[in-house]
Structure formats: structure tokens, C-alpha cells
Design a protein around this nucleic acid. Structure first.
Lengths: 185, 185
DNA sequence: TTTGGCATGTAATCCGTTACATGATTAG
DNA sequence: CTAATCATGTAACGGATTACATGCCAAA
């Protein structure tokens, strides 16, 4: 059996969290990029067609709206869609798949100059620091909020923070090691 | 511009580390699965065709061999291949892409039972503990080893360990939270 | 006025897995 | 004898990104 498509469930899940509040494809993309980009990503080329599929399958309901002439299609999840989502949530999640170029380039580090590796690492460490700061700020906001999904938002926020922190720590330590190696050479 | 294919570089990199020592496609797959599975993965359906491409492009040299009748094709990297690899290593690595189903299911946790989430989490935490143990064992071996790529192997080992550790810690903490939520419900 | 954000969409192409096929060797 | 491991390979399919196209609105 082929691996079941996961994009529909990301969309259903996000719409589920929104409840009756309708959402556009554009907003879904923004939500994914700004909240779970560290763990998932989707492109427009994926979102819009899947949204149509979900609508024709009866998992979501679409409504044409417009905000000051700007046309938009707003979606809400249906009862059928909620059922579909719930069933998926119960299935054991597969192992995460990762594609980390930075790690590859470090592993092959003996075949380039140390300074090159340092540059790569610094860029990624600084990026991680920035997202970490964003997460912490966001965490303060979520703490105050009272919804049924608040605890789960905190859980994934904690995951993002823990991962970023451990990455930054490892990067700093590795930069020291690389600095030492540059001197000796 | 389309995203440049990365599989060729993973292969060139691994062959580069091996130096003059030739390697089979099967061995490459094993190496990826056992050492960097946390950060990268490749399938046979990707490896074998790419190996042929690399050979016809002159980046690797192939030699038919046989180990006690068992036929095999052993590859080594060429000078041209090393150049090609070096050029790639210097280019800034893109952001890592991740697909983590577990995180998704936790984020949508308010739409299923808490016990379901606990089961998912326990499975993944236990898996992480096992890989962590493997890493630590492997680390002891690498520490003793003396090659030019040893420091880089240590670096990615440290990355793997740091990430696994932080995941396990977060998972344990999250399991406590979920346990508390189950009681209240 | 031009940049950037909002908003939707499609076509091409590639990346990658899965499933299948084949066969030898070795350990239990 | 049989299951597991070594070993290579292809076809089909689906997952996903990229590039492109279009157009409105608001702010600088």
C-alpha cells in the first residue's frame, strides 16, 4: 500500500482547531509557516488542489466571500471531515522524515575548508536563535489564552523550544571545536 | 531554478570519505540507515540509478567484482567527482525540511482521546531511547578511531545525541502533562 | 508609483518511495 | 531446509516544490 497523503489531514486538523471560524488557503499556509514550520511544511501548489478535493469529498464546506472586493474562498470543516480526521489521529504516526543538508556538509567536512563549515554553522545557529526568540514570545501569549487546544499548543511549543535550544547549544560547542581545528591547520 | 538534486552528493560524500576503498550501492544504503538516518534517508530506487548517472558523468568509477560468486559493482570517487563535491560543500546549505506526524497529531490532540496521544508518544519516546543507546555505544568506538574525518563524525554524533536527548526529555515531561489531563477528564 | 502583502490557481517537473523481480549465499 | 542477508535493478505512482500567471489593495 502506498503511503497515505498527509496534506489533507494537516488541513482538516487546522480547520478543526478553528471550529466554526472559516479559513482561507492563504491563511492555512501562513499558519503552517509561522507555527509548525520546524515540523511540517506545505506549499500553495499542494494546499489549493487538496482544499478542492476535500470540498468535493464533503470533508469541508466552502463559501465565497470577499473582504472589500478582494475575493476569497473560506473553508470550514464538516462533521464528516471531523470523523475522517479523528480516525487518522488514532493511527500510530510514522517515523519523522528529515532532510538536513547542514549535517551532510559537516559529515563531509574533511573534504573542504574548516572556515566554510564555520560559515554554514553560524548562519544556521543565528537563524535558530531568531526562531527561538519568536517561540518564547509566542509562548507568553499562549500561556494566557484559554481554549480547549491551548495545552496542545503549549506541548508543541515546548517541543520547538527544546529542539531549538539543543541545536543552538550543540552549534556553539561545535563552533568551538571547529575554531580549534582551524588554528592547528 | 529548481532545487538541485542532493542524492548524488550524499553518495559522492560517502565515497569521498571511503577514499580509495570501493563501495557497493547496498553498502551505501546501509551506511545511511545506520549513521545518519536521523538526518537523511535514501532508498534503493534512488541510489542505484544515481550511481549509474554518476558513473556516466565521470564522477565515480565502477568496477565489477564478486565476492565468492556473489556479483557486485564497487564504486570509487574520481578526481572530477571530488571537485564536484567540494563545490557543493561550499554552497550554503538550505533549511532542513522535516515531516513529523507525531507533532501534528499532538497539535490536533483536542480532537481525540488523551490516551491515544499517550500511546503515540510512548512508542516514539521508547524508539528514541533505543537509538540514543546505539549512538552512545557507537560514540565510544569513534572516540578511539584516528582518521581525518573522525572529528566530523563526532560532530554529527553529538548532534544526534543532543537531539535524541532533548526529545526524550520533552516526551517524558509531556507524558506527565497528558497524564494529568486524563485524570481531570 | 512601486513595493509588498493578500489571494487563488495551474503546469511542469522532479524527488522519492513502494512494489516487484531476480538470484546467490550463509546461518540456524 | 528455510529464513535472513547480500546484492542489483526497474516501473509505477504519488508527493511536493517551483515557476508562472493573475489581480486587488494598502502603505511608503
Amino acid at each position: 500500500m502506498k503511503q497515505t497523503q498527509r496534506t489533507p489531514f494537516v488541513i482538516l486538523g487546522l480547520l478543526g482547531l478553528r471550529g466554526r471560524q472559516s479559513t482561507t488557503g492563504y491563511e492555512l499556509k501562513k499558519a503552517i509557516d509561522s507555527t509548525i514550520s520546524q515540523f511540517w511544511s506545505e506549499s500553495f501548489g499542494q494546499i489549493y488542489p487538496v482544499l478542492k478535493q476535500l470540498a468535493s469529498a464533503g470533508f469541508v464546506r466552502s463559501a465565497n466571500a470577499k473582504e472589500k472586493g478582494r475575493k476569497q474562498i473560506r473553508y470550514t470543516i464538516t462533521a464528516k471531515g471531523t470523523q475522517h480526521l479523528r480516525h487518522w489521529l488514532e493511527k500510530p504516526p510514522g517515523e519523522a522524515t528529515v532532510r538536513n543538508e547542514l549535517i551532510l556538509k559537516l559529515l563531509f567536512g574533511s573534504m573542504t575548508e574548516v572556515q566554510v563549515l564555520i560559515d554554514h554553522l553560524v548562519t544556521h545557529r543565528d537563524q535558530a536563535k531568531r526562531t527561538l526568540a519568536d517561540y518564547r514570545q509566542w509562548q507568553e501569549q499562549v500561556k494566557a489564552q484559554k481554549t480547549d487546544y491551548q495545552p496542545y499548543q503549549m506541548i508543541i511549543l515546548n517541543a520547538g523550544i527544546a529542539q531549538s535550544e539543543s541545536f543552538v547549544r550543540w552549534a556553539d560547542q561545535t563552533l568551538e571545536t571547529l575554531g580549534g581545528m582551524k588554528e592547528k591547520a
